[in-house]
Amino acid sequence: QIGDLVNIDLDLEIVQSLQHGHGGWTDGMFETLTTTGTVCGIDEDHDIVVQYPSGNRWTFNPAVL
């Protein structure tokens, strides 16, 4: 839910696979593998929007978090 702290604890290849159809994966997202983020929103597809200390916001398949 919004305000929750979240981490990704999966291998890169699994995360990339799960992201298909959920915003995809870009090289800029590598920070998300090692950094705790804060849930800042849930979109119309029930994907999770997470903000990181860098100021970046990324959209994830809920199965990734």
Rank of each mutant, 00 (worst) to 15 (best):
H46R: 06
M29T: 04
F60Y: 03
E13Q: 09
F60E: 01
V64C: 12
H46C: 14
A63K: 14
N7R: 11
N7V: 12
L18R: 05
H20T: 11
T32Q: 01
H20E: 15
N56A: 07
T34N: 13
H20V: 15
P62W: 00
I42F: 12
P62G: 06
F30P: 02
V15G: 02
R57E: 09
I14D: 10
T36W: 07
L10T: 09
Y52L: 01
F60W: 05
G28N: 13
V50F: 04
Y52A: 03
M29S: 01
V39Q: 07
D43F: 06
L12Q: 10
I48E: 00
S17C: 11
T34A: 13
F60S: 02
E44A: 14
Q19N: 10
L12A: 10
I14E: 14
L33R: 06
H46V: 03
V6N: 02
Q51A: 13
D43E: 08
D45Q: 13
D45S: 14
G37H: 06
G55L: 01
A63N: 04
D4G: 08
H20P: 06
N56M: 05
L5N: 12
D11W: 01
L12N: 14
P53A: 08
G55D: 02
L65T: 05
P53L: 04
G3R: 02
N61E: 00
W25N: 00
N61W: 06
D9R: 10
G28S: 13
P53G: 04
L12W: 10
L65Y: 08
V15K: 06
L18N: 01
E13M: 10
L33F: 11
V39E: 04
T34G: 13
F30I: 15
P53C: 01
G41V: 09
T59P: 02
E44L: 10
D11S: 12
V64S: 06
N61T: 04
G3D: 03
P62Q: 03
I48T: 09
H20S: 11
Q19P: 04
D11C: 02
D43H: 11
T26S: 14
G23W: 04
E13H: 12
R57H: 10
L12V: 13
Q1W: 13
Y52M: 00
N56L: 02
D45W: 05
I2P: 10
D45C: 07
G41L: 06
E13A: 13
G21C: 02
I48Y: 05
T38P: 03
Q19A: 02
E44Y: 11
Q1L: 11
G55W: 02
H46E: 14
G37V: 01
E13G: 12
V50I: 09
H20G: 06
L33K: 03
Q51I: 11
G24C: 07
A63C: 11
E44I: 08
D4M: 05
G28P: 11
N61V: 00
T26W: 09
T26L: 07
T34D: 14
Y52N: 07
N56Q: 07
V50K: 00
Q19K: 03
G23V: 10
I42T: 10
D9Q: 11
F30V: 15
L12G: 06
C40T: 10
G3A: 01
G28C: 13
L65Q: 04
D47V: 14
V6K: 03
V6C: 05
I48R: 09
Q1E: 15
G28R: 12
P53W: 04
D4C: 12
F30C: 15
L10A: 11
G55E: 15
G24H: 12
L5K: 15
R57N: 09
W25C: 05
G41T: 05
G21Q: 13
E44T: 12
Q51L: 11
M29V: 05
G28A: 15
P53E: 10
I2Q: 09
P53F: 01
F30N: 15
I8L: 09
Q19S: 02
Q51W: 07
T32N: 01
T26C: 15
I8P: 01
N7L: 11
